[in-house]
Design a binder for these strands. Structure first.
Lengths: 194, 194
DNA sequence: CGCGTGATTGAAACCCTTCAAGTTTAGTGG
DNA sequence: CCACTAAACTTGAAGGGTTTCAATCACGCG
């Protein structure tokens, strides 16, 4: 249940076979059924979840009880509330399995050991953070400037596979619109060409 | 013209007086007049700007020519297009001086030297990235869930000083609404209590 | 098969934008 | 220091996009 993660470490973090094996020897993996929660808002997030198989989503719940999807995490993605894990604060997010999902649990200790074993891992970690920032920045820009239709088109361009695996109301929630609006946007798009 | 930055390094990155002096010996600082650009969208961002005095803003310009403020940078803040600087890509942002501003120019070499001199700086840098992520995440959440009024109240709570130094239309741009809308929001707030 | 969840559709309401005009403020040169 | 101008802010009316609420349809799963 670690195959993807081990392959990921070798390829992206440039670790050797031996380094990967020693690092991941003590890691635990877990399975969650569709609909199960990996983290509830208000708890402290102790882990970063690496998705071996399946699909996660993280989301917030506002005062009115409405959910807002922050991130989808398909295979080979990390899902976590970074702020909660790093600063040991109560999490704003909840994390839920959208499909039956197998994850690898990475704790703070893992990050430490990884950095000690190979300094390339520190570089890798910084790059991951920089990438995350770039991604969030792009999303803010979209939310500030684009209509619902543009945001949707951007979504299906970026995550074509997710468009099929994720219920439409979750995509609407990610885009910051209602399911009804997304339905109408799709109707318009279908009418006009594709 | 480095006083604030040197004090910042000592306090936040936990560097010694000697480390600070040797690190900052070769740094250059520059002054920009109100309205001057430090970076134009499309260029590669070679520097992180530390604001010694004054006020910067970074913003994008959309297809319709509309500006969207990404960040304000008052004294003791860093302003940069992190993605452009880190990945050597063309910047999506422009950076402009909102007031007459004095900045310290930090390049990639500075970061390297800082990490070599004191490993605490690497920790500091990671914390800065994590903080940035937390901040962006909060903003996305606001954009997804809050009305214009809530977003404005959040802004004046977070940046009470900026509310006075920044023209209203820039705040509107930061909030993702038109200047007219912000004017009406303020009118409503004034009518109802404060 | 039936129930529940997700998707669609319609009508009304709402929030925000757009456009246009008017007012205030701030900066500049005489 | 005043006069002039440009920029910023306000206000109104009309319009657009999205939400809300409600009803209906489609479908998968127990």
């Amino acid at each position: 249940m670690l195959e993807n993660f081990q392959a990921y470490l070798k390829e992206k973090a440039k670790l050797s076979e031996a380094e990967v094996l020693s690092l991941t020897a003590t890691l635990t993996s877990r399975k969650f059924r569709k609909g199960e929660f990996l983290l509830h808002a208000g708890e402290i997030c102790h882990y970063t979840f690496f998705v071996e198989k399946g699909l996660l989503r993280s989301f917030t719940t506002d005062d009115a009880g409405k959910e807002h999807v922050i991130q989808f995490g398909p295979e080979n993605w990390f899902v976590s509330d970074r702020s909660s894990a790093y600063f040991h604060e109560a999490s704003d997010f909840s994390i839920e399995a959208v499909e039956d999902t197998a994850v690898v649990l990475l704790d703070a200790d893992f990050m430490l050991r990884a950095s000690e074993i190979n300094s390339a891992f520190t570089q890798f970690n910084e790059m991951a953070l920089q990438n995350h920032i770039r991604h969030l920045q792009k999303r803010i820009n979209l939310l500030l400037s684009a209509t619902a239709e543009k945001r949707y088109l951007d979504f299906i361009r970026l995550y074509p596979d997710l468009t099929l695996r994720v219920p439409q109301w979750m995509i609407a929630s990610y885009l910051g619109i209602t399911p009804e609006s997304l339905s109408r946007v799709r109707k318009e798009l279908a009418k006009n060409h594709l």
